Simulated assay, not measured.
Amino acid sequence: MKSRNASAIWNGDLKGGNGRISSDSGVLDKSAYSFATRFEDGKGTNPEELIAAAHAGCYSMALSNELAGDGMSPESVETRASVTLDQVEGGFAITKIHLDVKAKVPGASQADFDAAAERAKTGCPVSKLMNAEITLASQLDS
Score class of each variant (00 low, 15 high):
residue 86 D to N: 06
residue 121 K to Y: 11
residue 92 F to T: 10
residue 114 D to V: 10
residue 127 S to W: 09
residue 43 K to I: 12
residue 124 C to P: 02
residue 24 D to A: 11
residue 21 I to T: 06
residue 59 Y to I: 01
residue 76 S to P: 00
residue 7 S to Q: 10
residue 83 V to P: 04
residue 119 R to P: 00
residue 117 A to S: 14
residue 17 G to F: 14
residue 139 Q to D: 12
residue 99 L to D: 01
residue 60 S to P: 04
residue 54 A to R: 00
residue 61 M to W: 09
residue 1 M to E: 11
residue 24 D to I: 03
residue 62 A to F: 07
residue 47 P to A: 14
residue 62 A to L: 06
residue 127 S to M: 02
residue 17 G to C: 14
residue 22 S to I: 06
residue 17 G to M: 13
residue 62 A to E: 12
residue 111 A to S: 13
residue 28 L to P: 03
residue 37 T to H: 07
residue 69 G to A: 06
residue 34 S to T: 08
residue 61 M to I: 13
residue 95 T to G: 01
residue 58 C to T: 11
residue 25 S to N: 14
residue 26 G to V: 08
residue 139 Q to E: 15
residue 31 S to L: 15
residue 14 L to A: 15
residue 96 K to I: 03
residue 38 R to A: 05
residue 48 E to T: 02
residue 33 Y to V: 09
residue 2 K to A: 11
residue 50 L to E: 10
residue 8 A to H: 05
residue 94 I to L: 07
residue 94 I to K: 00
residue 14 L to M: 14
residue 81 A to I: 05
residue 104 K to N: 12
residue 113 F to P: 10
residue 4 R to F: 14
residue 125 P to L: 03
residue 80 R to N: 07
residue 114 D to A: 13
residue 141 D to A: 14
residue 94 I to P: 00
residue 7 S to F: 05
residue 48 E to I: 03
residue 129 L to I: 12
residue 137 A to P: 00
residue 89 E to D: 13
residue 139 Q to G: 05
residue 24 D to G: 03
residue 34 S to D: 07
residue 55 H to W: 13
residue 23 S to A: 12
residue 112 D to M: 09
residue 131 N to S: 10
residue 44 G to W: 06
residue 9 I to T: 14
residue 50 L to Q: 10
residue 44 G to K: 01
residue 39 F to D: 02
residue 14 L to V: 15
residue 77 V to P: 02
residue 12 G to R: 03
residue 37 T to W: 05
residue 71 G to V: 08
residue 90 G to H: 09
residue 50 L to P: 02
residue 76 S to C: 02
residue 26 G to D: 12
residue 96 K to V: 01
residue 51 I to Q: 07
residue 80 R to G: 00
residue 50 L to I: 11
residue 4 R to A: 08
residue 102 K to R: 15
residue 19 G to S: 08
residue 80 R to T: 15
residue 38 R to D: 01
residue 27 V to T: 12
residue 18 N to E: 14
residue 131 N to H: 12
residue 66 E to S: 04
residue 45 T to Y: 05
residue 29 D to V: 01
residue 12 G to D: 08
residue 58 C to W: 10
residue 111 A to R: 08
residue 97 I to K: 00
residue 118 E to L: 04
residue 119 R to F: 03
residue 71 G to I: 11
residue 69 G to E: 07
residue 105 V to P: 10
residue 96 K to D: 15
residue 35 F to N: 08
residue 63 L to K: 04
residue 20 R to F: 07
residue 127 S to F: 06
residue 141 D to N: 12
residue 75 E to I: 13
residue 86 D to I: 00
residue 105 V to R: 02
residue 140 L to Q: 01
residue 37 T to K: 08
residue 74 P to N: 09
residue 90 G to S: 06
residue 104 K to L: 10
residue 84 T to A: 11
residue 58 C to R: 04
residue 123 G to L: 04
residue 137 A to K: 13
residue 56 A to F: 05
residue 26 G to E: 10
residue 8 A to K: 05
residue 60 S to I: 02
residue 72 M to W: 01
residue 136 L to Q: 12
